[in-house]
């Protein structure tokens, strides 16, 4: 399955290109933020807030929680930025920190970070639904972002985590296994089930819309 490269994203997102142009200043902002410069810290916030907040919102499907977690992630950034050594990209480091904040929150709420279902379970739920009467998603050529967003929010929490980490955030299965503490096989099967579930949800959504109009 071909996953879009970052370059593709840059090409189609002028905002992102603009951000990359200011990339040179990020190192400086990081150094200044390490010294406690509030302006530099705010610059880092402005640059990364969308990505961090979107991650929090997708993982929790709850605005208030996402706001709290975004705040917590940036406060942790503020406390820990002096330990950032620049071996990894700052954004990678910050996103990983944010993922940990969210996972910690989910665990505190005793929500399943990963669904405990067996990977071998080939239930009826996993077979393609033929009774929607809706066209294949692929034939439509694209998926509306808001529909996908809504469908992700409707995923069971365990599926949601893996889908967001893999397909949205771009983590590999071995990284996910380390981050959430599951097997690579578990991560793969959860991702597959999440995508299957999303397909159902998207089709259902499309069928409902067709029924209304």
């Amino acid at each position: 399955m071909v996953r879009p490269e970052k370059a593709t994203l840059t090409d189609r997102d002028p905002q992102e290109r603009q951000r990359q142009g200011s990339e040179l200043n990020e190192a400086e902002a990081i150094e200044r933020a390490k010294q406690g410069d509030a302006q530099a810290f705010q610059a880092l916030y402005d640059k990364h807030k969308r990505r961090v907040y979107s991650l929090c919102l997708r993982m929790t499907a709850n605005t208030a929680e996402a706001e709290d977690l975004t705040q917590e992630a940036f406060l942790q950034l503020y406390r820990k930025i002096a330990t950032f050594r620049g071996e990894s990209a700052f954004s990678t480091w910050l996103h990983r920190l944010s993922v940990n904040v969210v996972l910690m929150h989910l665990r505190k709420k005793s929500l399943p970070v990963v669904s405990l279902e067996e990977t071998t379970q080939g239930g009826e739920e996993d077979t393609p639904k033929k009774d929607f009467g809706a066209e294949d998603l692929a034939l439509a050529g694209s998926i509306d972002r808001l529909h996908l967003q809504k469908a992700v929010d409707d995923l069971p929490p365990g599926y949601r985590t893996i889908f967001v980490l893999h397909d949205v955030e771009g983590y590999e299965h071995n990284e996910i296994a380390t981050i959430v503490g599951c097997s690579i096989g578990n991560s793969k099967s959860q991702l597959h089930k999440a995508r299957m579930k999303l397909r159902d949800l998207l089709k259902l959504n499309r069928a409902e819309k067709a029924g209304k109009s």
């Binding site: 997708r58 996908l148 995508r195």
Partner: peptide, 8 residues
Amino acid sequence: IASSAIDL
């Protein structure tokens, strides 16, 4: 679905 996810 997988390729659209990055939009999120």
